[in-house]
Structure formats: structure tokens, C-alpha cells
Computed example of a mutant assay.
Amino acid sequence: MIWPPSGHHCGVVRTADSTLTGRWHRLRLRPRLALAALAGFVIAVPVTLLTLAVRSGWGPVHRIDLWVADYLHGVVGSRPALLRVLLVVQDVMHPQVFRAAVAVLVVVLFVRGARRLAWWAAITMAAGSFLGFALKLVVARARPTFDLPLDTAPGYSFPSGHALNSAVGVLVLVLALVPVVRGARARLMLWLAGAFVIVLTGFDRIALGVHYLSDVVAGWLVAGALVAATAAAFETWRRDAGRPPHDPLEGVDPDDAERVVS
């Protein structure tokens, strides 16, 4: 007797094996993303402390912080129209706005069946929010003070939560959706628009006098490190799952991203 008795059973076995393998690879994705987020935190803490030490102990950085803060305070304070615009930008670019935008993206991705990409976006954004809060408590840097403040903000100053969350949110949105944007020029415009939002948010915090320049730059650096870590974890998972390597700047998961518009 020949075993297996027919090619049909071989197909069933192969299908079952491939299904189990696919499930195993998907189960391995979430722990990898969580570990990558933790790695981003572990890296960001000493980087942040080093930045603060440099700011406190190295004269040029401290003087630049104070000079930029005083200069922009004078410029904005003498232009009421500009101040009103910046106050609107502050609300539009609030961290909750970027969290909500990523949350909508996650829901859409789950509904469309792009669950791998949804998990990456959700974990990265959540880790960014937690990271900013934790680093503020660790560093506990006071905010800038002025005799006539243009605006006030609660909590500590370093790093800027607006800068960090806007950078994480924009990078998550762009890296998730760039594969569905057709044409090199359109993709470049998407990246430039994202960069504009990030820079505008950071400038707004400094111009309103609620953050120093180093607060904003630190927020950008931490956000970049976090997104890079989770994107790298996602790429290693893709290769382990037998998917072809690709340029991360072309999107974290092009296969899943296509489902958004399909």
C-alpha cells in the first residue's frame, strides 16, 4: 500500500503545516515589538540623561537654550497675531490628536485584515506615549520661566511631549501608508508634509515659551530611536517569516498596507 494514498491528503497536510507556521510567526511578532519598544526605552534613558548632563554642564548648549527662548519670546510677544496662530497650532498638534489619528489607523487596519501592521502601529504609538511620560519623571526638568509668560503648561519640560508624540505619530502614519502612495514625487511630498508637521510642532513649543530647544530636539531623537527599533523588529520578523527584504523607508509592511485601499 502506498502512503499517503492520494495527493489530496498531502495537500491537506501541507496546508495545515503552513497554517500552523503562519500562526506561529504571527504570534512571535507581538513579543518582538514589545521587546523593541523596551529596547528603545533602555536606549533613550541614558541618551536623555546624557543630553541633560551636557545641557547642565556645558556652557554653549545652556546658552543656546536661553538665547533661543528669550529671542522667540520677544518676537512672539510683540506680534499678537502670531501668538494667536501658535496657540491654535498648540491645540491642533496636541499629543491626543496624534494618538487619535493612529488609533483610527489601527482600527482601519484591523477591519481590513492588516493585523500585523495594526499591531506595529499600536505598540509603537503606545510606547512613545509611555516613554515621554516616564522620561519626564526621570529627568524632572523645570520649564522655562518669564516675567510675562505667553503661555503655561503643566508638568516637567524634558523631553517635549508634543515633539515626541508628534514625531512618533507622523512616522507611524507615514511608514504605514507610504506603500499605497503611487509615484516617487507623491511619496516625497508625503515625507515632506510629515517633516513639516513635526518641525512646526516643535517650533510652536519653543515659541510659546513652554519648552527649551533641547527639550524638543530630545523628543525628536527619542521618537526616532523608538520607531527605528520597532521597525527593525518588524523587518526581522518579516525575514524570519520568509518575506522578501525591503527598504524600511518604503513602508514597514507593504503587503498589509495594500489592504487599506484594496
Score class of each variant (00 low, 15 high):
residue 22 G to N: 13
residue 207 A to S: 13
residue 244 P to R: 14
residue 62 H to K: 15
residue 50 L to G: 13
residue 210 V to T: 08
residue 93 M to Q: 13
residue 52 L to F: 03
residue 14 R to E: 12
residue 229 A to S: 14
residue 78 S to Q: 13
residue 86 L to N: 09
residue 73 H to R: 07
residue 164 L to H: 10
residue 209 G to W: 05
residue 203 F to T: 10
residue 233 A to S: 06
residue 76 V to A: 06
residue 47 V to G: 08
residue 70 D to H: 15
residue 77 G to L: 00
residue 56 S to E: 15
residue 186 A to K: 05
residue 50 L to E: 11
residue 52 L to S: 02
residue 42 V to K: 03
residue 254 P to G: 06
residue 142 A to Y: 08
residue 160 S to K: 06
residue 99 R to T: 08
residue 41 F to W: 15
residue 179 P to H: 04
residue 202 G to C: 11
residue 46 P to C: 02
residue 209 G to Y: 06
residue 27 L to K: 07
residue 240 D to C: 10
residue 34 A to R: 01
residue 238 R to F: 02
residue 114 A to Y: 00
residue 253 D to G: 03
residue 37 A to C: 06
residue 116 R to T: 09
residue 136 K to D: 02
residue 221 L to C: 04
residue 68 V to K: 08
residue 83 L to I: 10
residue 142 A to G: 11
residue 81 A to K: 07
residue 197 V to I: 14
residue 42 V to G: 04
residue 183 G to N: 06
residue 244 P to T: 15
residue 190 L to F: 04
residue 200 L to V: 12
residue 254 P to V: 03
residue 70 D to E: 15
residue 223 A to F: 04
residue 234 F to R: 00
residue 80 P to V: 12
residue 258 E to C: 05
residue 27 L to P: 01
residue 45 V to F: 04
residue 165 N to G: 11
residue 81 A to I: 08
residue 149 P to I: 07
residue 125 M to K: 10
residue 192 L to G: 06
residue 38 L to C: 11
residue 48 T to S: 13
residue 125 M to P: 00
residue 182 R to D: 13
residue 116 R to M: 04
residue 243 R to N: 11
residue 31 P to F: 10
residue 92 V to L: 15
residue 120 W to C: 09
residue 164 L to F: 08
residue 15 T to G: 08
residue 53 A to Y: 10
residue 224 G to S: 07
residue 153 A to R: 05
residue 42 V to Q: 03
residue 76 V to R: 01
residue 120 W to D: 04
residue 124 T to K: 08
residue 32 R to N: 05
residue 131 L to C: 07
residue 114 A to N: 12
residue 165 N to C: 11
residue 146 F to Y: 15
residue 55 R to G: 04
residue 97 V to R: 10
residue 109 L to R: 11
residue 88 V to F: 15
residue 231 A to E: 01
residue 153 A to N: 09
residue 107 V to Q: 08
residue 69 A to Y: 02
residue 260 V to E: 09
residue 184 A to Q: 12
residue 124 T to M: 07
residue 64 I to F: 14
residue 60 P to V: 03
residue 56 S to Q: 15
residue 115 R to P: 03
residue 36 A to N: 04
residue 169 G to W: 02
residue 195 A to D: 00
residue 164 L to S: 09
residue 11 G to Q: 13
residue 87 L to S: 07
residue 83 L to T: 14
residue 117 L to T: 08
residue 227 V to Q: 05
residue 180 V to H: 01
residue 257 A to C: 08
residue 141 R to T: 06
residue 72 L to I: 04
residue 249 L to A: 11
residue 218 A to K: 04
residue 22 G to K: 01
residue 220 W to K: 06
residue 77 G to E: 11
residue 192 L to Y: 03
residue 139 V to H: 04
residue 255 D to N: 05
residue 94 H to S: 10
residue 148 L to H: 14
residue 19 T to P: 01
residue 69 A to N: 15
residue 188 L to Y: 09
residue 19 T to Q: 13
residue 246 H to C: 03
residue 254 P to Q: 00
residue 140 A to D: 15
residue 181 V to D: 06
residue 223 A to E: 05
residue 193 A to Y: 06
residue 137 L to G: 13
residue 88 V to Y: 14
